[in-house]
Design a protein around this nucleic acid. Structure first.
Lengths: 125, 125
DNA sequence: TGTTTTATTGCGAATAAGTTGCAATAATAC
DNA sequence: GTATTATTGCAACTTATTCGCAATAAAACA
């Protein structure tokens, strides 16, 4: 299943790269100049996730948001789990450079972390 | 808007009290002996949330799960934000007694935290 | 105890997010 | 240039949650 380069893929990737925020499918659809089908956007995004180009966050609104996997300065090798911040005022989600730290009971094995803080961001407070 | 006691409310509350896990609407509906309408279950649960009897978790499946606000031994006054664990094997969500710790950039104000770790629980590993 | 008030419920319909099957299109390899 | 098959668009579908409305039933009160 080799990947192909398409205008759609390019457009979505560029949008995500230029965005400071995590974007939902409908935000992406709105912000793109070219018209791309809803289902296609999801498929492109999910492929990006499979390829670890993008990570998916699910917020308390139950919606999926997608953000480029930027590597943290301190740990260039790993894109570790970090907190996300959802501002209720401007309704945007961004990645914080704050690693998620936790311990789990014996026998538990963590594969993923989905952590979203909610409140008011600097721009809105 | 005074609250009234109803069989429905009782039943849902007792179920949540007796459950070690956070429950979704459909899990509650399935586990109850009495027949309660879907919309009603949601309304009861949301009222519990408003009254801080129950807290809501949204998992990466986008679904809402509800759990009794048990107070942690260490900080009996406050039900502080804690991690949740979702086991992909037995598909259940539970509250961990692990507080969520974080810092946020200047000017950010956190009102809530929704943190779910995903993986395999002790029973399934 | 009977009556009134209004919170709660059930029902059905609506909404919204995300997925899927399928046929058409278009990258890429040869 | 042709063949292969990844990608796309479309429409339909699924699933979770919400909402309006009329009926019901707690709770307060006479």
């Amino acid at each position: 299943m080799n990947r192909r380069n398409t205008p759609t893929k390019e457009a979505v990737l560029n949008l995500l790269l230029s965005s400071r925020k995590a974007l939902s499918q409908d935000a992406i659809e709105r912000q793109l100049d070219i018209e791309i089908n809803r289902a296609t956007i999801y498929r492109v995004l999910n492929r990006f996730c499979e390829d670890d180009i993008v990570h998916k966050i699910v917020a308390e609104d139950g919606k999926q948001y997608f953000a480029i996997c930027k590597k943290c300065e301190d740990q260039p090798e790993v894109v570790q789990h970090h907190f996300h911040f959802r501002c209720l005022s401007c309704d945007s989600i961004e990645c914080l450079q704050v690693p998620v730290e936790y311990s789990v009971p014996n026998g538990y094995e963590v594969q993923n972390a989905n952590c979203v803080l909610t409140g008011t961001c600097n721009d809105c407070s």
